[in-house]
């Protein structure tokens, strides 16, 4: 199986270890991975802030870049949600007919990481080993835009050595919201405080998710508050094995 990795702009810059984990994981599962060197950003930040023309130019770039690709894997729910929920509207409003056709053909081949594993590779046990206590944060985009459902749990349940602790108020937003976190910093922080209380209350060592954006927000506050907990993308847990444990982030 061949797949092309769209790593996303912020993972590329801020969380390269997640990208390395995806590579380790998928290659271990026999996927032949490709990486388009000219990729940058899906345009979500622009679209969500109201800069629609700018978002459109990113969308156009990506659709054209990936039009001949078999399968695109993205380890970020919110960027996949951008593809599914916002590209159609953007292309209808600003796009040409040819671009729309290219997009329509591409869309069913775009997968979020857990979708790719469970739906496309049809695997739940990826051979992972992670001897830690972990709580899972369901990001809003994964939960309500992509409807990931039980996919993350089907994967996590097969991780050896891992103890899961359920997070209360699972469907409540952590308060990140992209530029919302600075445009409405005070409200965002208030939401964060409530979420952090729930997360720290689980007593887990790690909080994991399928979006590093939420984790950056949560992890930043954990670090500020000496919460004694860390954040980790689920890809890094799934990549970790007994023989080759997770790399410790810099």
């Amino acid at each position: 199986m061949r797949a092309s990795l769209f790593i996303t702009c912020y993972n590329d810059t801020l969380f390269p270890e997640t990208g390395r984990a995806v590579v380790k994981l998928l290659e271990r599962l026999g996927v032949e991975l490709d990486f388009h060197p000219k990729q940058t950003c899906c345009g979500q930040m622009h679209a969500n802030t109201g800069f629609r023309a700018e978002a459109f130019s990113q969308a156009k770039r990506l659709v054209q870049m990936y039009q001949d690709t078999d399968t695109v894997v993205i380890p970020s729910s919110s960027c996949v949600a951008m593809f599914r929920d916002q590209y159609p509207g953007l292309l209808e409003e600003l796009g040409n007919e040819e671009l729309r056709k290219q997009f329509t053909a591409l869309l069913p081949r775009v997968y979020e990481l857990s979708e790719f594993l469970v739906d496309k590779l049809k695997v739940e046990d990826v051979g992972a080993y992670f001897p830690h206590k972990v709580t899972y944060h369901a990001s809003c985009h994964g939960l309500r835009a992509l409807h990931l459902g039980d996919r993350p749990w089907r994967l996590m349940n097969k991780v050896r050595g891992m103890e899961q602790v359920a997070l209360p108020n699972l469907d409540r937003c952590c308060g990140f919201g992209g530029t919302f976190s600075v445009k409405n910093a005070e409200v965002s922080s208030a939401m964060l405080a409530v979420k952090l209380q729930d997360i720290v209350g689980t007593g887990a060592e790690y909080c994991t998710a399928l979006d590093n954006s939420c984790l950056m927000h949560l992890g930043g506050a954990m670090h500020r508050q000496y919460a004694g907990m860390k954040t980790i993308h689920l890809a890094e847990i799934l990549a970790s094995t007994e023989a080759s444990p997770m790399e410790v982030p810099a």
């Binding site: 790593i7 993972n11 590329d12 810059t13 801020l14 969380f15 390269p16 270890e17 997640t18 990208g19 390395r20 590579v23 990486f35 060197p37 990729q39 976190s181 600075v182 445009k183 910093a185 005070e186 922080s189 964060l192 405080a193 950056m216 927000h217 992890g219 930043g220 506050a221 670090h223 500020r224 982030p249 810099a250």
Partner: peptide, 21 residues
């Protein structure tokens, strides 16, 4: 506005695309 309530991890020395290349 970000660092009012949160820290930011310093940027890693190597980007993912740099590592891939």
């Amino acid at each position: 506005k970000w660092t009012q309530t949160r820290d930011l991890r310093g940027l890693p020395s190597q980007t993912f695309h740099g590592w891939w290349a």
